[in-house]
Design a protein around this nucleic acid. Structure first.
Length: 957
RNA sequence: GGGCGAGUGGCGGAACUGGCAUACGCACAGGACUUAAAAUCCUGGGCCCGCAAGGGAUUGAGGGUUCGAUUCCCUCCUCGCCCACCA
């Protein structure tokens, strides 16, 4: 037998595929098409990492399958070639990024090709090539014309190590995403894309996408929409340019509890600049908090709130009351209006601040509970009786126990509660109830937190719907003196003292359970929605209804606020696409005319970062004449964020060599949107959000006719090192795919990566396990070239059925698993099939059929091997020209089935029976089964559960 | 602090809609071939008791629903990822 020489075979077939152009996608309209895309790599000097080919292999298997199903597939590859590492390397080594990038691309292209992926290389693109970035610049100009690209002075994130500004998305934990240096806040005039115009659509359209739910959730959080209101608080005591404070709140229902206003240091600074005569203490505080780097500011403030009173007073438009204004760094300048109304009774941060500075706390929202289960369930159709009530928490200080009652006719455990009579003082009412129900005479009021909750339930004794407002009162028992309890009360419930640590489990009624919050935390405040209190005509309304009603009365604007900010795209770096803008002393900001594109990146540049764009130092680049008035002018020297390049690359693949326009719209219509996109989850809120934004803008500009670029998306999970840690050079646990391909071959490598586990899971690499898939391929080789053939007899009917069962079963499993991207179990099914084939000896005619099937099923996973064997067996044509195998559903039904026999749910035996027997027959067989019968001696069978052709369970007493 | 996800042999993992837990692979042990080793092939156990036949336990822990739970419900523990003073 010829040996399985992976090197020879793989080189041979890769060359054939390339020469025959078999993976070149044809632009035919109205064909059944599929656009399958991998996230294009950054051409790093490290070359490919074993993580990259995981996603590439998955899409390759799927593409090869689709082509055999007759689908025209677009499966391109390219290079996200601009970016900082190449430039940083240039600074260190003095080698130009263009050169190193080109070398890196050549290396990675070689690596990718060595794995035999079926890319259409005729469509290869490179974002750092002028043919490409010309259109990135053109897009910038279209955005500019539409008012979606603008230049503004704004506080921005500055990375002192990378010497450039960063987008919000590139700042993680206040640190530069790339180099982990803490970022600084600077005020700079920079270019932005107005992504916030699309915030709402970017949020809503997520629902339509077949993406991992966690990833969609990350985008939702990033966009961060909050429904709320903007309210104006007029300044009442001083006069300067600012006459009112605008605040944003999501809790307009709490406005009657707003006892002060807090503004951010950023806003305070603006006011000072606008002429506010702030005292020195304020100026120092504002200065200090803005100077302190963001990270420290947050860490300090979370521990303890700081702030100063401004002396300014405003009118609360709801209460008409005059309230003070404070400045504090717990209010962010970058969110909402940079100012809040503080409601200490219903917000933990405001509460902490109010406690520290002794500001008034006013409760205005009370929790609402509706019983929904059991006999107590509130009956919405029936009339409701409203009652004022007390909930009395009586503590015995001697042993830290609490006075409780346990109802005798229901399972109901709680504190002493009772109704308050008309005109009765609540403390008096509470004492009366304690005395009536328990007999204790001497209790002392400890505190009245002026807290109440509303409970809606059906009163089982009184037989009516109740809406009770329980007010809490805390007492201590002074002494044990008590009167006898009246007989009627006694018959209803039992009086108990429950120890503090048992209380939580004991209490069963809602007002009791809720008390736990106060006992556990004396500073407990209620932050949820509920029923309004102390809120004029809105008292008694529910939060949701009160918000629009209050808004109407005080003329507040209901709006949605987003966390998403506009995308800052300027970078003070060299290796990127120059922003096509010219600054003229006469005409100001002038866009470069489209005919002058591309604005070429000059070669004669000193890369050393100075905080200024390196392009500033290129005289040939900087000095231009104004396109409008021809006067001397200068070019914008910043380049664009590289995420701009990758926001539209999937469109260029449809028409990559067009020199007249960005793309031919007809070709976009043929291929787009992308049907299936695979890549890492790290792009959740950057690339994937930006690409969606670009698509929506291009749709509004009329260039594309769809709203979402990537219909279906899956993330490949991380491949960890053999030690279970993330692979990294410093840990020394990096696996180089080249070595694996050299030693075991590309087919083995591909198969191993798919066999490791589910695509989306993180999983550790284990080199010794590779041998398993290599053995499998060798078995396929052996089975195809040197099968055991039975020349003497035909296959018996039984064996014939068994064979077609295996063929159908395997075809079905492999097909289903490819479509659902569960490659690990597809490979396991192929292994089982091969193990079976090794055990049987078949006549030549069957042997040929089964080998053909096996090779076709294996082809998407191990294409080199399958092509080679197909050729060696002298089968007609090429394997990739064959249609994908179909299976026979009838063959999946077997004559004989294995039925599990259980006694009381425990497996006691197996029955091999003809399929489709009725229950009675199966029971008969089961009872006779030796390992089963011994359990039945002297027992009655109570019940029998029969799952046809699968399982029988005999339930005995 | 909030959100999402996960927990199954020594290891990676499998199990449709509640129906034989541990498929497939690695590793391991015994055997065959070999002067020997590697490779290959065959066989085997998987935690506990037993020479064995066999029995019992078992899907992070505890509880519930069910004839039957890795799967559904409740409580808790651990790990991973993301977000985090966002009003």
């Amino acid at each position: 037998m010829i040996l399985y020489d992976h090197k020879k075979i793989e080189e041979k077939w890769q060359k054939i595929w390339e020469e025959k152009n078999i993976f070149v996608a044809k632009d035919k309209p109205n064909q059944e098409k599929s656009y399958i895309l991998d996230m294009f790599p950054y051409p790093s000097g490290q070359g490919l990492h074993v993580g990259h080919p995981e996603g590439y292999t998955a899409t390759d298997i799927y593409c090869r399958y689709l082509r055999m199903k007759g689908v025209e597939v677009l499966h391109p590859m390219g290079w996200d070639a601009f970016g900082l590492p190449a430039e940083n390397y240039a600074i260190k080594s003095g080698r130009h990024p263009r050169l190193t990038t080109e070398e890196n691309i050549n290396n990675i292209r070689r690596q990718i090709k060595s794995l035999g992926f079926s890319y259409d290389w005729s469509r290869e693109i490179n974002t750092s090539s002028p043919d490409y970035y010309r259109w990135t610049q053109w897009l910038f100009l279209q955005f500019y014309k539409k008012g979606l690209a603008y230049r503004a002075l704004a506080p921005v994130n500055w990375c002192p190590s990378c010497q450039t500004v960063l987008a919000n998305e590139q700042v993680v934990d206040r640190k530069c995403e790339r180099c982990k240096t803490e970022v600084e806040q600077r005020n700079m005039k920079q270019w932005f894309f107005k992504i916030t115009d699309y915030a709402d659509e970017l949020l809503c359209d997520l629902d339509k996408l077949d993406w991992p739910e966690s990833l969609k959730e990350m985008q939702r959080n990033w966009i961060g929409a909050s429904q709320g209101a903007v309210i104006k608080f007029p300044i009442s005591n001083i006069k300067f340019k600012i006459q009112e404070i605008e605040i944003f709140t999501t809790r307009l229902d709490t406005i009657y509890g707003a006892t002060f206003i807090v503004i951010s240091p950023e806003l305070a600074k603006k006011w000072i600049e606008a002429g506010w005569q702030a005292n020195e203490g304020i100026i120092i505080y504002v200065h200090e908090s803005l100077k302190g780097r963001e990270l420290e500011r947050v860490e300090r403030a979370v521990k303890e709130k700081t702030g100063v009173e401004t002396g300014i007073k405003v009118i609360n438009p709801a209460t008409g009351e005059e309230i003070p204004v404070w400045v504090a760094d717990y209010v962010l300048g970058s969110y909402g209006t940079g100012a809040i109304m503080a409601v200490p009774a219903h917000d933990e941060r405001d509460f902490a601040f109010a406690k520290k500075f002794n500001l008034p706390i006013r409760r205005v929202v009370e929790p609402k509970f509706v019983a929904t289960e059991g006999e107590e369930a509130f009956r919405p159709q029936e009339e409701t009786v409203k009652r004022n009530a007390v909930c009395c928490v009586v503590r015995n200080p001697k042993d830290d126990s609490y006075l409780c009652v346990s109802w005798k006719h229901f399972i109901m455990h709680g504190f002493i509660t009772g109704g308050v009579e008309e005109g009765e003082d609540i403390v008096a009412a509470a004492k009366r109830e304690i005395h009536e129900e328990t007999g204790y005479k001497n209790v002392r009021l400890v505190s009245n937190p002026e807290f109440a909750l509303h409970s809606f339930f059906y009163h089982r004794v009184k037989k009516q719907n109740r809406h009770a407002r329980f007010q809490y009162l805390f007492f201590e028992l002074e002494n044990e003196e008590k009167d006898p309890i009246n007989i009627q009360e006694e018959s209803l419930h039992e009086v108990l003292w429950i120890k503090r640590n048992n209380l939580k489990n004991f209490l069963s009624v809602i007002e009791g359970k809720f008390t736990e919050n106060f006992l556990a935390n004396s500073d407990y405040i209620y932050t949820g929605e509920g029923i309004l209190w102390n809120s004029d005509e809105f008292s008694g309304m529910e939060s949701a209804a009160a918000i629009p009603a209050i808004a109407k009365k005080i003329k507040a604007q209901l709006t949605t606020q987003y966390k998403l900010h506009d995308w800052l795209i300027s970078r003070q770096r060299y290796w990127g696409a120059p922003i096509p803008i010219i600054y003229c002393n006469q005409c100001g900001e002038v866009p470069v005319p489209e005919k002058d594109l591309p604005v070429l990146l000059p070669d004669d540049v000193d890369f050393k970062p100075t905080g200024e764009s390196p392009l500033v130092r290129s005289v040939s680049f900087q000095n231009v004449s104004c396109p409008q008035c021809a006067a001397a002018a200068r070019r914008e020297s910043d380049t664009m964020d590289t995420f701009v390049d990758s926001s539209w690359y999937f469109l260029r693949y449809c028409d990559p060599h067009n020199t007249e326009e960005i793309f031919d719209k007809k070709k976009i219509d043929i291929w787009c949107p992308v049907d299936f996109y695979v890549g890492g989850a790290e792009h959740a809120v950057m690339h994937l959000l930006y690409a969606r934004f670009f698509t929506k803008v291009l749709r509004d500009l009329g260039y594309v006719n769809f709203s979402e670029p990537f219909l279906k998306l899956r993330n490949q999970g991380l491949i960890l090192g053999e030690d279970g840690q993330k692979m990294s050079k410093s840990r020394g646990n990096v696996i180089n795919p080249d070595e694996i391909v050299e030693k075991y071959g590309a087919d083995t490598f591909r198969l191993y990566e798919m066999f490791m586990g589910p695509l989306e899971d993180a999983k550790p690499w284990n080199t010794t396990s590779i041998i398993g898939v290599r053995r499998f391929l060798e078995k396929v080789w052996q089975l195809a070239l040197t099968p055991k053939i039975n020349h003497l007899v035909d296959l018996s009917a039984d064996k014939e059925q068994e064979l077609s069962y295996w063929m159908s079963k395997t075809t079905k499993k492999v097909t289903d698993d490819i479509v659902t991207f569960r490659f690990n179990t597809a490979i396991a099914a192929l292994m089982e099939f091969v193990n079976y084939l090794f055990k049987v000896t078949l006549p030549a005619i069957n042997q040929q059929k089964v080998t053909d099937l096996l090779l076709q099923l294996v082809y998407p996973f191990a294409p080199h091997l399958a092509c080679e064997l197909w050729e060696q067996l002298e089968r007609p044509g090429q394997i990739w020209q064959q249609p994908w195998p179909e299976y026979n559903p009838q063959a999946l039904q077997l004559n004989k089935v294995n039925i599990a026999v259980q006694v009381n749910g425990k497996l006691r035996g197996q029955l091999l029976l003809t399929a489709g027997l009725n229950e009675v027959e199966v029971i008969d067989w089961a009872k006779k089964l030796e390992p089963v019968s011994k359990y039945l001696i002297g027992k009655n069978i109570k019940r029998i559960i029969y799952v046809p052709d699968k399982l029988i369970n005999l339930v005995i007493e």
